[in-house]
Structure formats: C-alpha cells, structure tokens
C-alpha cells in the first residue's frame, strides 16, 4: 500500500493525501493523469474493484469534483482519486475500457450533471429522465421549487376554518336558527 501511494505521488503527480481511515485514502490527481493512474491501480497494484464513481458540484468554486473509488480485495484497502474539472462545458475522459460497469456511471452523470464523456458507448441514451430539456437536475443551481411551480398546474392551497363556526354552519341550517 505504501509503495502504491508513493508511486501515485511520484509518477502520477497525486497530491493532497487525506488518510480518512486505516483502509481509505483520498488523493487528488490531474485530469490528464487520471486514466493512466487508474490503469496502474487496476493492472499492477491489484485495485481491481471499482466501488463507485461519483460527482460533487462545488458551485462556489466553479468546479466539479469526480471521485473514483477503487478497492483491493487482497490488501483490504481503498483508494479514492479526486479529480477537479471546470464547471463550464468541460469533458471528462471515459474509463469504460477499464471497467465496463463505468459506462453506466458515465451515462448517469452525463444526464444528471451535463458532463460529456466522449468515446463512451451508449452515453447519449437516456438513463432515468426521458425527454428532459431543462438544466441537468443534479447541478446545484437547478432550482427544484421553481421547476415544479413552472411545470405542474398550480392548485389552491388548503383552506382552514374555525371549527366552531364551521360546525355551526354545517349542522344547523338557516331555518333552525
């Protein structure tokens, strides 16, 4: 594990090491070094299992954070590689050649965050949303309230009544008074 981390830092320029737990280390790599670093981790260092690939939106800093989380069953350790890319119209490299299952993650993130992955098969197909024309919904600046107000027919809110008056009106008709 130590040698792997040294190699990642020395050869692939990984930085900002955060040891979250004994079995989980976060490292930040450049976008250009990502695919080669993951290839090294999978083919040489034994980190064969892609646990997950996720995106977090840092709207204030104008960045998307990718996290590629890989696991080694032999070492019982996890390494999570963080990659920061610009929020505006930047593409990301695809890793479907390393893990076929990454194709689904990439398809989902294209739909939910609007990040393109050139070269990934079937990436342009709809994943969850069909016929969606708005801003990708998992972006921080997508306003769910505004969207629902605009899309769905506005209904009257609930009315409240004073129970005493209301019951009187319901139970006793005008004539009885």
């Amino acid at each position: 594990m130590k040698a792997t981390l040294e190699r990642l830092k020395g050869f692939f320029g990984a930085s900002d090491e955060v040891i979250q737990r004994d079995d989980l280390v976060f490292l930040t790599v450049d976008k250009e070094n990502l695919v080669s670093a993951l290839t090294y981790l999978k083919n040489e260092a034994g980190f064969k299992h892609l646990v997950m690939m996720s995106v977090a939106d840092w709207l204030e800093e104008g960045k998307f954070q990718f996290t590629y989380h890989v696991n080694s069953h032999e070492l019982k350790k996890d390494i999570a590689l963080r990659v920061f890319i610009n929020r505006d119209n930047e593409d990301m490299y695809t890793i479907h050649t390393l893990w076929p299952t990454a194709m689904v993650y990439e398809r989902e993130n294209r739909e939910m965050f609007g990040i393109n992955f050139p070269g990934c098969p079937r990436v342009e197909e709809n994943f969850v949303l069909e016929g969606w024309e708005e801003m990708p919904p998992n972006r921080r600046d997508f306003d769910t309230k505004e969207y629902s107000d605009k899309t769905f027919f506005p209904r009257d809110g609930r009315t409240t009544n004073d129970p005493r008056e209301y019951m009187k009106e319901k139970l006793y008709s005008e004539e009885e008074k």
Partner: peptide, 8 residues
C-alpha cells in the same frame, strides 16, 4: 469478469 463488472 466479476471484478470488472463490480459483482459483490
């Protein structure tokens, strides 16, 4: 193919 496809 289990590791490639993330089978657990």
């Amino acid at each position: 193919i289990m590791e490639d496809y993330g089978v657990t």
